[in-house]
Design a protein around this nucleic acid. Structure first.
Length: 427
RNA sequence: GUGGACGUAGCUCAGUUGGUUAGAGUCCCAGAUUGUGAUUCUGGUUGUCGGGGGUUCGAGUCCCCUCGUCCACCCCA
C-alpha cells in the first residue's frame, strides 16, 4: 500500500470516468447557453461570516460541516459548502444585482465535512443556476424547465420532480409557530432527532424518517393551508406553467430545504437508484437573501445539482460518453521509422484538427505494438518499418475485428494519409 | 457525529480448529510465430495480507487501537 493516501472524502477521477465528466460539462454548458445564462466563476474560499449569515447559523452545514480555518492574518475563512452565497456576494460586489436582471450559472467543487458515503463526499462538485431580479413565477418555471432539459440531455430518466411552496416569510413564520405548538403537544412521542429540531429548525421535523413521527404528522397543520394569497397565486401559476410545458411533478407538502434562505418555491429532482442520497438536483426561490447580505431587496431563484450523483446515475442507466478512443495508432519498427513516424504524426496532427493519434513509444515487436494498438481502441494501425521509410509509404491496417487479415491492409504513400484519416473524423 | 459490514497481487477473489516458503483467475512481459492482433500452449514479474501494538513456540487467521471503503442514521446536491 501507499505511504500516502488521499484525504478522506477527497477523490481522484481517472481516465475512463473523466471522459464522462467532460461530456457532462459540455452538455451543461450547451444547455445553459440555450437559455441565455452566463457563466460566473467564483473563488473556493470566502469569509466564514458570509456562509453563517446566508445559510443560517443553526443549520447543520454551518454548525458542524464547514472546512473553516484561520489564515495568517487571523481571518476566519471557509471552503465554500455551496455556491449561492458566493454568487450573491459576487453579484453585489460587482453591481450585477443593481436594479437589473441576471441569469448566471457556475460549476465547481464544494466542501462539507460529512461522513463519506456513495454519492456524498467531502469535496464534491455542483453545477447550478441563479436568476436575479425576476419576481414572477415565469422565471421559476424557466429554471425548472432548464433543469429538466439538462437531465434529459444527459440521458437521465427515472427521476421525479417534487414541488412545494414555503410561502412568504410572514406566512412561514406563522405556520412555523402553529407547527411548533402542535408538535409540543406531542413532544413525548417524537423521536429524539425531531425533539431536538423542534426548537432549532422545526420545519425539518416534517421530513423525519421516523415512522412514529410521520404518524403524528398526519394530524399536523399543513403548509398548503397556511400559504398566503400571493404565494398561493405564485404557486398555482408555477404549476400551470409546468403543465403547459408537459413537465410532470408531484406535490410534496413535506419538502423542506435545509438552508434557511429558501422561501416560496422549493423543488427537488429525486431518484431511488442511488440509495439514501437520492436528491440529484434541488433549489428554489430565495427572495430575501440579497437584502440580508446588504443589497437592495432582489428576487432570486436557483438550483444546484450534484455532479457525482449525476455521474453515478448516468452510469447506472448505461449512459455513454462520446468515444474518446484514438482514431489511429502508429507502430514504428527501427531507428529510422521511429524518427520518421514522429515527424509524420506531428504533420498529421497539424493537418487534421480533432484527430486523435497515438504514436507507439517504448519500442516492442510489431505483435506487441499491434496488441497495444488494439487495446487502445484505435480503429486503424499505421505500420512504419525501414522498408516503408525507404519507399515513402506506410501500411494502413484495420483494427477492432479479429478476422481482419492482411488483405485489409494496404500500403499508402505518406501524402495520401491526411485524406485517409480525414474520413475517420467525419464518422 | 451514531450504528453495522468489510480491507489478501493493478483488478476479481480463495486461504481449513492459528502450523512449512501466501494462492487462483485476470492483467502485464517474453517465447512458440522468419515483420502482423484472436485462440491455444510454455515461462516470467507483481504482495509490508490496510497500518500499529498484543497473545503465542508460531498470526493473513485470535485480541486491542488506528486508517480507509461501503450501508443505514444524520445531513444534503
Amino acid at each position: 500500500m501507499n505511504k500516502f493516501q488521499s484525504v478522506r472524502g477527497f477523490n481522484d477521477v481517472l481516465p475512463p470516468d473523466t471522459a464522462l465528466w467532460q461530456h457532462l460539462h459540455a452538455v451543461a454548458a450547451r444547455t445553459f447557453a440555450a437559455y441565455g445564462y452566463g457563466e460566473i466563476r467564483l473563488p473556493l474560499l470566502e469569509h466564514t461570516a458570509l456562509f453563517a449569515r446566508s445559510i443560517g447559523e443553526v443549520t447543520d452545514i454551518v454548525e458542524k460541516e464547514m472546512f473553516t480555518f484561520q489564515d495568517r492574518e487571523g481571518d476566519s475563512l471557509t471552503l465554500r459548502p455551496e455556491g449561492t452565497a458566493g454568487c450573491v456576494r459576487a453579484g453585489l460586489e460587482h453591481g450585477l444585482l443593481h436594479n437589473q436582471q441576471q441569469r448566471l450559472w457556475y460549476a465547481g467543487p464544494m466542501f462539507r465535512h460529512e461522513r463519506p458515503q456513495a454519492g456524498r463526499y467531502r469535496q464534491f462538485h455542483q453545477l447550478g443556476v441563479e436568476a436575479y431580479g425576476m419576481a414572477g413565477p415565469d422565471i421559476d418555471i424557466e429554471v425548472i424547465a432548464l433543469s429538466a432539459r439538462l437531465l434529459r440531455a444527459l440521458g437521465i430518466g427515472a427521476v421525479r420532480l417534487e414541488l412545494n411552496s414555503l410561502g412568504s416569510a410572514q406566512a412561514r413564520a406563522a405556520y412555523r409557530a402553529a407547527l411548533v405548538a402542535f408538535l409540543e403537544r406531542h413532544e413525548a412521542s417524537l423521536d429524539a432527532d425531531s425533539r431536538r429540531r423542534l426548537h432549532t429548525n422545526p420545519l425539518r421535523v416534517l421530513d423525519s424518517k421516523s415512522l412514529q413521527t410521520q404518524e403524528i404528522l398526519h394530524e399536523a397543520p399543513t403548509m398548503a393551508d397556511a400559504l398566503d394569497a400571493e404565494s398561493r397565486a405564485h404557486f398555482d401559476a408555477l404549476q400551470q406553467g409546468l403543465q403547459d410545458l408537459g413537465i410532470d411533478y408531484v406535490l410534496n407538502a413535506r419538502l423542506v430545504r435545509g438552508l434557511d434562505y429558501y422561501g416560496r418555491t422549493v423543488f427537488e429532482w429525486v431518484t431511488d437508484q442511488l440509495g439514501a442520497q437520492g436528491t440529484v438536483c434541488a433549489g428554489g426561490r430565495y427572495d430575501g437573501l440579497v437584502e440580508m447580505l446588504g443589497g437592495a431587496p432582489t428576487p432570486a431563484v436557483g438550483w444546484a445539482s450534484g455532479l457525482e450523483r449525476l455521474i453515478l446515475l448516468m452510469k447506472a442507466q448505461g449512459a455513454l460518453a462520446p468515444d474518446a478512443a484514438p482514431h489511429a495508432y502508429v507502430c514504428v519498427l527501427g531507428e529510422a521509422a521511429v524518427r520518421q513516424g514522429r515527424r509524420l504524426a506531428e504533420q498529421l496532427r497539424d493537418a487534421l484538427p480533432g484527430l486523435r493519434l497515438v504514436l507507439n513509444a517504448g519500442g516492442g515487436k510489431l505483435a506487441a505494438q499491434l496488441r497495444r494498438a488494439d487495446r487502445s481502441g484505435a480503429r486503424l494501425a499505421l505500420i512504419l518499418g525501414d522498408a516503408e521509410v525507404a519507399a515513402g509509404t506506410i501500411q494502413v491496417k484495420s483494427l477492432r475485428s479479429p478476422e481482419t487479415t492482411e488483405s485489409q491492409q494496404q500500403a499508402l504513400p505518406w501524402a495520401e494519409l491526411p485524406q485517409r484519416l480525414g474520413g475517420l473524423l467525419d464518422a
